[in-house]
């Protein structure tokens, strides 16, 4: 399973955000670069939310993602938000994953709207990593987590990433190093 960019160019108005990008994504790739250099645009292209102005984006299989925003259904509780993306009734699996990520039993049953920012982020992460996907795009997935929680979430994510391609967008070189794989520096 892989994703492949061939000569991809993307412009907004008169500004070229990505130019003639060619790359094959396999295993873990950590994407780094200054703000405004097209990292999120690249994620949206891979997820099929935008089309390139020229070039080709080829992605095989199903995808999952953690977006810059959490994009949780506010009325559903943490478990239901994760189970939403799982085939059949995935509540038990979702519950286990969220507990591993440090959410308390009480928090699991709260609507997403009343969870803290860090809790919402972990729910979004669990949803992406448990979904039956062949590729995962994680756009700053550990944003807003304290150091200990982030470390726990990173270890959990690395374990769940096995067997599929993963694009990790981050500003943190330590996170990139932790995940190993290929480092891709964009526009810097």
């Amino acid at each position: 399973m892989y994703a492949e960019l061939t000569g991809v160019t993307k412009r907004y108005g008169g500004e070229t955000v990505l130019e003639s990008l060619t790359r094959r994504l396999e295993g873990v790739t950590a994407l780094m670069g200054p703000s405004g250099r097209g990292k999120t645009t690249l994620a949206r292209l891979l997820l099929g939310l935008e089309k390139p102005d020229s070039g080709r984006v080829a992605v095989t299989g199903r995808l999952a993602a953690v977006f810059q925003e959490d994009r949780l259904c506010p009325q559903l509780n943490a478990v239901a938000n994760v189970a939403l993306a799982l085939p059949g009734h995935g509540e038990a699996l979702a519950r286990q994953a969220l507990e591993e990520l440090g959410l308390s039993d009480e928090d699991l049953n709260k609507p997403a709207a009343v969870l803290s920012g860090g809790q919402q982020r972990r729910v979004a992460l669990a949803r992406a990593m448990l979904a039956p996907a062949d590729g995962v795009v994680l756009d700053e997935p550990f944003k807003g987590l304290d150091e200990a929680t982030a470390a726990r979430a990173m270890a959990w994510t690395r374990q769940k990433a096995a067997g599929r391609w993963l694009l990790l967008i981050t500003h943190d070189p330590e996170q990139a190093a932790f995940f190993g794989g290929t480092l891709w520096q964009l526009g810097g």
């Binding site: 939310l49 199903r62 999952a64 993602a65 994009r71 559903l76 939403l84 993306a85 949803r127 996907a133």
Partner: peptide, 18 residues
Amino acid sequence: LLEMARIFRLPFGRTLRA
């Protein structure tokens, strides 16, 4: 949320309800 549903390929019934 609709983009999320599209990416995760949520079935129509789940998208409708959630």
